[in-house]
Amino acid sequence: MPEYNFLVVEDSPTMRQLITFALKRIPGSKVIEANDGIDALKKLSTQKFDIILTDINMPIMDGLKLVSMVRNDPVHKAIPIIIITTEGADEDRKRGLALGANAYIAKPIQTADLLSVVNQIISGRSA
């Protein structure tokens, strides 16, 4: 069975738990949580991840900055990134995708939608 390592970057413990709950339904999934962008970068430097799921509005380092830093990092630039945020306006979506995010999901999230996006990315990578 293939293993998938997910990095969930979210300052809200409620959302972290909810996203982790959803991802754990994917067989072979392993979820690591980070509170903000800096915490995420630390975890990226020590472990390998298949997908990063990040919020935008976070203290210390926000999600957009994290996306931009990951995309400019030669080691991690290929990791797919999903933005999960309360910012649901079209311009926010465009900005997130323009920075290099692979998908953009507006809160409140539907577990089925989140899993569908994650599975699409997984199947795209394994194809």
């Binding site: 809200s12 413990p13 409620t14 959302m15 909810l18 309360t86 809160k107 409140p108």
Partner: peptide, 14 residues
């Protein structure tokens, strides 16, 4: 703080 998070993230209130 947790109640605010729930109302914002799970219900979708601004």
């Amino acid at each position: 703080k947790i109640i605010l998070e729930i109302v914002m993230n799970l219900i979708g209130a601004e």
